[in-house]
Structures are given as structure tokens and as C-alpha cells.
Design a protein around this nucleic acid. Structure first.
Lengths: 140, 140
DNA sequence: TTGCTCCTCACGTCACGTGAGGTGGC
DNA sequence: TTGCTCCTCACGTCACGTGAGGTGGC
């Protein structure tokens, strides 16, 4: 898959992909001879999608994203390690680290949702007042 | 209230307030002699707060905000008009316009919440899988 | 060969941050 | 008078957008 297909699949632009690579948010597609096309796989789509959602929905800066991505790197590493071991202790460790990471993301998302819901509640209240007054006027 | 107090009350910076004034998102505090201090009131805090929430929570650009703010201007105008009339027909019209505007904001907020909830659902699912696998391993 | 997508500079833009140098009010 | 906040340029920065000019693969 080339850069255009990746960008489209993840819902962003070619320039953004190149920029993220430039600042190290996406891994530089390995061993490209100068001027050669970049090649990507499914896991790059996954990673880019998650990046964009964390940025867009949670409003993280690319610097903050970089920190979260340390967690994403570890997640990818765990996935590989998972398939390379069958030792239950290893797998238990891998899983609990994964759980911890998922929980930290869930915490971020929940906090955001709380803000959004408080705004929505305020709007609903406003709506109520307006609708109530309209009914009052209708009775006159 | 001066610009520092306004910025603090709304949870932003002095520079941002000046920038929003520059591009016309906030009204230029009227009839300042060159170099004089800007003066603000409670309704400026209100407006700036709403702006920042629409921007931060919904991820609107300042250009998009400018369009929404046309609605906010109308809202402020309706508030003034409300107090200047007692004619039921006028008030009914004011109220239904207000309702319409509130509904459009609610629609924006709901759409965002839906995106956030779908992300949260995905994370919960991921968490479930991890927790399930952990229990499986514990039984071995 | 034609069309499309890709490549690398590199300058432009949006939404501010951050001094520089100076003035105003408790 | 001292301190704090304010003022206006104006350059810097972050996260890309947008050509310019050229090369690569179906």
C-alpha cells in the first residue's frame, strides 16, 4: 500500500502522513533508497487511525500524542511478543500491561465525554427554558 | 473588567483574546482611544466561554466558529429584544428562533458525543478481550 | 506514450506564543 | 516610587496546505 492509499484509509492527507513521519510519530518506512516510494501495511493504517482519533476527539497536541504513542509502540511490541511466546507467565505479563494501557486510554476518553455531556446538559437546560416559556405564551 | 481578568475567567490567555478581537470573533471593545485599556463585562465572559467550548470540545476552526457566532450574535440580539418588547407575538418569534439555534448546537454536540462513544465502545471491547484472555490463563 | 501518483524542497497559513520597548492605574 | 498589568509591533512556532519541478509504476 502506498502513501495515498494509507492516507485515504485513515481519513487524512498525504502531507499529514509525511509530516508525522518527519517528526517521528509514524515510523519511517524502512530502508527506502532516496526518492523511492513509501510502502505501508495494515498495521500502519491501524496506528494512524488511532493517532487521528486521539488527536481529533481528545484534542491532544502532537507532543502529547508522542507520549501516548510510546504506549502504542509497547502495544505493537506486545502483539509481536504474544505470538512469539507460549509461556503462560509471559502472556499474563503481556496481557496485564495491555489492560493497563487500554485503561489509561479509556480514562482519557471518559474525561472528555464528561466535559461534552456537561455542555450538552447546559444546552438541554437552555432548551427547556425556551420551550417552557413558549408554552406559557401559547396559553395567553 | 480588564483583559487579564476576562482571559482568566474564561480560561484562556490574553493573547488569544486580542487575537479573537483582531479577526472579529470578539467585538472590539468600543471607542478605545489608541493605547487605552480594553474593558469587558459579564456577557463577554459568557461569549468567550461558549466560543472556547465550541472550539475545544467540537474541534471547530475559527472560520467555522465565525459562522456559529452569527448565531450567537442573533442570540444576544434576541435577549435585548426580549426585554424591549412585551408583545406576545414578538416574544413567540424570539423564542422559536432561540429554540432553533439551541437545537442546532445540540445537534453538533450530539454528533461529537456519538463519535466519542464509538471510540469508547471500541476500547471497552479491547479491554474485554484482554480481561477474558487473562481469566483463561489464570485457569491453567 | 499518456495519466496518475509519488518524490523532495520550500514558502504560505492558521492560531496563537513570546519577547521588546513603552505606558497606565492602584 | 515601585509593581503589576496593560499596550502595540513583530518575529517565532506548530501542524500542516500548497505549489514547483521532477521521477516512477501500471
Amino acid at each position: 500500500m502506498r502513501i495515498g492509499a494509507l492516507a485515504k484509509a485513515a481519513g487524512t492527507t498525504v502531507r499529514t502522513v509525511r509530516y508525522y513521519e518527519e517528526i517521528g510519530l509514524l515510523p519511517a518506512a524502512d530502508e527506502r533508497s532516496a526518492g523511492a516510494h513509501r510502502e505501508y501495511g495494515e498495521e500502519d493504517v491501524e496506528r494512524l487511525r488511532e493517532l487521528l482519533r486521539l488527536k481529533g476527539l481528545l484534542g491532544l497536541s502532537l507532543e502529547e500524542l508522542r507520549e501516548v504513542m510510546v504506549g502504542e509502540d509497547a502495544r505493537a511490541a506486545r502483539r509481536r511478543a504474544w505470538h512469539e511466546t507460549s509461556d503462560p507467565d509471559d502472556r499474563r505479563r503481556i496481557l496485564s500491561e495491555g489492560l493497563e494501557y487500554t485503561d489509561s486510554l479509556l480514562e482519557l476518553v471518559r474525561r472528555r465525554r464528561a466535559e461534552l455531556e456537561s455542555f450538552e446538559a447546559e444546552l438541554r437546560e437552555r432548551r427547556q427554558r425556551q420551550a417552557h416559556l413558549l408554552r406559557e405564551l401559547a396559553r395567553v
